[in-house]
Amino acid sequence: MSNNMTQRDAFFERLYDLAREDRDVVIVAADMSAPALDKFRTDLPGQFVNVGIAEQNAIQIASGLALTGKKAFAYAISPFITLRCLEQIRVSNAIMGIPIAIVGMGTGFSYCSDGPTHHLIEDLAVMRAFPNIRIVNVTDNTMARAMADIACNGRGATYIRLDKDPHPDLYEPDTDFEEGVAKILEGERYVVSSGPMVHVVREVIESLDADDVGLIDLHTLPINVPAFLKQIEGARGLLTVEEHFLPGGLGSAVLEVLCDHGLSMPVRRIGIDIALGYTHCYKYGGRDVIRSHYGIDSQNIAAAITTWRQKQTRAQEKEQWLVR
């Protein structure tokens, strides 16, 4: 199902419903606007706080509110509510374990014309360095809505990464996302991705008519290891795809799990080569233009999947021949 609603609006609409029922739900926004947020501000002014463009303070005010029993949602543009506030998040939410929701707007190159200050291609590596913080790279609107509920359960801090572009719904309305990982397409070998790239990869796999290539949405970090290992059981290989620098990102997290569990599965990673730096962040004409310069647009991913399949098939044939 395709729709024009963004993850942000789906998320805040659900949060609005929750807040109407629960006075403890509070948004701490760093001067952000959105139609769904405006409705919240107008109808529930006692549950909406604007700190101005002061993200570090947003984290601290939200954390202080949480100490009085509030379910606080600190909301700003993603790089600013995470990378700018690292020290606050580290002490208040990782060390002290104060449960708040850190809600970031925009992932990858979704602010495509705004340059690298507004891009978000380092945060997974950085945020997953902290214990006690659950990171969710939201895939569709169903997941966005569910995260509003999950973040209210007070079981620790959650960083919710909302994409700016509208995406089709992949999940059924009552999907349970607690597992942290979900299989979108069955296959013999799997592409592992998360967030908006899941949609790009799914389209590529479908256009290639590649029945043997499955797709796993690893939406939550740290990886739920037993659940992830179950999903990749018997897989011939993995290809990770992310709109993020390669060091420390999703592919790295996957490699760590495989390494720590002694699984010698062939893995290829597609993401942003750190050696390319921020150069292509200044290419204009849309998100796909930047992605293509970094080799992570659908065309490049299609080519990579094709090569990967061929190599894997050849290796498989060789293996079978040797066995015979």
């Binding site: 006692g46 303070n57 601290q60 954390s63 509110l65 009085t68 029993g69 509030k70």
Partner: peptide, 18 residues
């Protein structure tokens, strides 16, 4: 880590007022 407790204090004060 300096400069942080005061923000928590303000959040607490706001929460008590709410």
């Amino acid at each position: 880590s300096l400069g942080q407790g005061f923000g928590l204090a303000a959040g607490l004060a706001l929460g008590f007022q709410m």
